[in-house]
Every structure is written in C-alpha cells, then in structure tokens.
C-alpha cells in the first residue's frame, strides 16, 4: 500500500466557528474514500485544504509526499480536483477549456492531444466539445468538470459531490468511471447520497461538526446499525405475540419488534451476532412453519443520523 494522502490534526476555524477541528486520516493507492457527513459538516472545507485552496488554521496535509504548505505547486500537480458545483469558464468550449487545463498541467503536443481526447471520451462529452460550456445542461457541465479533473491522469483524485444534480443514468456512468479508475489512484469523494457508499467506496470517513465520527469500511459502517443482522421472520398460523415470547426466551436475542406487514416480527440479536441459522432451527423444532425469513445488513441512513446528530440536537 502506498500512502498518497496524509492528513494530520487538520483544522480550519473561521472566527469562532470551527469548520474543521482536528481531522486525521490517510488514503492509500487503490482506496476510494467516501467522505460522508451532513451539509456544513466540514467536508468541502477539508477538501479545499487538501487541494491547497484554503490555508489550514493548524495541522498538516501531505499529498504524494509533498507538504501543501511548503510545496503547494507539487501538491496541486499531483491532484485532480472537481470543486463543488464543477465551476468552469462558462464562455469557453469544453475543447478550449480542456486544452487550457492541459497547457497549465504541462502537457504538450501529441501528449496533450491524447490527454484531452481521452478525458473527453471517459467523461462522455465528445459530442459537445465545441459548444460554449454555459449552454450545456447541468449534467454535461458536471462531466466537463470531471474531464478536467482526470485529464492529467493524476495519482490523487478529489471530487466534491461528483454526482450531485445528475440523473440516475448519469450517476451510474460517473460511478462506473470512478470504479474503473480506482485501482491505481487514491480517491476521495464527498457525498451525502448514502447509496453511493456501496456503489463506489471501499472505505468511509464520516465527519460531523468538524470531527471524524467514523473511519472504516462500508460494511463496518453498516454494522453500527441496530438493524445489523436483525432477522425478519413470519410464521404461518402463529400469533405474533406468541412468536415474540418464544424468540425472546432464546439466549442470543436482545429484543423484537412487530413488522407492520406480513404478520411477522423483527428480531434483534445480542451484540450484532449472526443468529439466522440457529433461529430458524429453533423455530422449526418448535413445529412451526416459516413463511419468510431474511437478514438485514443494517441501515446506513439510521447510522448516519445517529453519528451526525448529538443527543439534544434539534435535528
């Protein structure tokens, strides 16, 4: 594993407001880190500090071994960055815009031509290359921003809400593109769309109120849910109450709740244990016929809510 991004005790204060307050994590080659958190949690601010747009109040950022404070140009050269809202020069065409980016990125001649063509193809904008960017739809503008970010095949890719405002097909294309590139890059993607956690990321960092609340795999994130490994069961011809009483008498069961459909119950295991097999055997050995049974993975939205709202918060 090659460390590409190292962030230590990073903080940004705007007056009294601590937008980012002591964030530490690192990203290696091959990792796609989904940066989660509610709006205003400090995701964008953190990304702006990594890319050298904002100067940190304290802490260090190193990208590919370069310190953003002492060698910002090398850091910026190593990063492909899609800022929030994918800003671009509206009166340019994607062709002129990408050529400008290629120039500044130090690409020349045939190399430049190839880079522009390849980025345009990957971002699927080849057929709008000669229309002013301001006349393009939101989805295409976003893709132009994406093409700009991947143009120089950077070792590090940082994207602030790359799928925001795209339709489901466009989202799918962007996710596919990111998955294709994941292998040899270190990627940070901010999002508040939880389904993307599974679609793109192999690691998640969840940030709330400027602090990291979780750092682990999407699976570990789900495991924090109280629905993790919960089993939903319905049994033919048996009252829900009787079923609940029986199940709750078992060792590994922490509790149950009725499902509001199917005449079944949801069974919460103790300590998030995997109890499906044992449970089904016990129910069957009781002479009951199982009509349906399935295990829940855990609910990301519930974990998200739990981790990002403190007890007593209005939200």
């Amino acid at each position: 594993m090659t460390l590409r991004i190292e962030i230590e005790d990073l903080a940004k204060h705007f007056g009294e407001i601590k937008a980012v307050d002591g964030v530490t994590f690192s990203v290696s080659k091959g990792e796609v880190l989904g940066f989660l958190g509610p709006n205003g949690a400090g995701k964008s601010t953190t990304m702006k500090m990594i890319t050298g747009f904002l100067t940190p109040t304290r802490g260090t950022v190193r990208v590919c071994g370069y310190d953003v404070l002492t060698d910002p140009i090398s850091v910026k050269a190593s990063i492909g960055y899609l800022p929030e809202g994918a800003p671009a020069y509206a009166d340019m065409t994607p062709e002129g815009f990408l050529k400008f980016i290629a120039d500044v990125r130090g690409l020349r001649g045939a190399e430049k031509k190839r880079a522009v063509a390849s980025a345009a193809e990957k971002a699927r904008i080849t057929h709008v290359m000669f229309q002013p960017i301001e006349t393009l739809s939101k989805g295409y503008k976003r893709r132009v921003g994406l093409a700009q970010a991947i143009l120089h095949n950077p070792p590090v890719l940082i994207m602030d809400e790359p799928t925001d405002g795209l339709d489901p097909n466009q989202k799918y294309e962007v996710r596919t593109l990111i998955n294709e590139m994941a292998e040899d890059k270190a990627i940070i993607i901010s999002t508040h769309i939880l389904e993307e956690v599974h679609a793109m990321c192999n690691r998640n960092v969840l940030i709330a109120n400027g602090k990291i609340e979780f750092d682990g795999t999407p699976h570990e994130l789900e495991a924090l849910s109280r629905y993790h490994n919960a089993v939903c069961v319905s049994v033919g011809g048996v009252e829900t109450d009787a079923l609940s009483r029986f199940v709750e008498s078992l060792d590994d069961v922490a509790g149950t709740e009725p499902l509001n459909f199917n005449n079944g119950i949801r069974i919460f295991p103790k300590g998030g244990k995997q109890i499906t097999l044992e449970l089904s055997e016990r129910i069957r050995s009781n002479g009951w016929q199982i009509e349906s049974l399935y295990v829940e993975n855990g609910r990301l939205d519930e974990v998200f809510r739990t981790l990002t709202t403190r007890p007593g918060d209005a939200a």
Binding site: K48, T51, G52, F53, I73, S74, K76, A77, I79, Y81, P83, G85, P87, A88, Y89, A90, I101, V104, R105, G106, Q148
Partner: peptide
C-alpha cells in the same frame, strides 16, 4: 462570482 477561482487556484499555478 462564478467560483472558477477555486479551479484556477488549485491548478499548479502560483
């Protein structure tokens, strides 16, 4: 106004 300054200032340009 357009936010393109964020793009410009994160390119390897002083």
């Amino acid at each position: 106004k357009s936010g393109s300054i964020e793009l410009l200032m994160t390119l390897p340009v002083s």
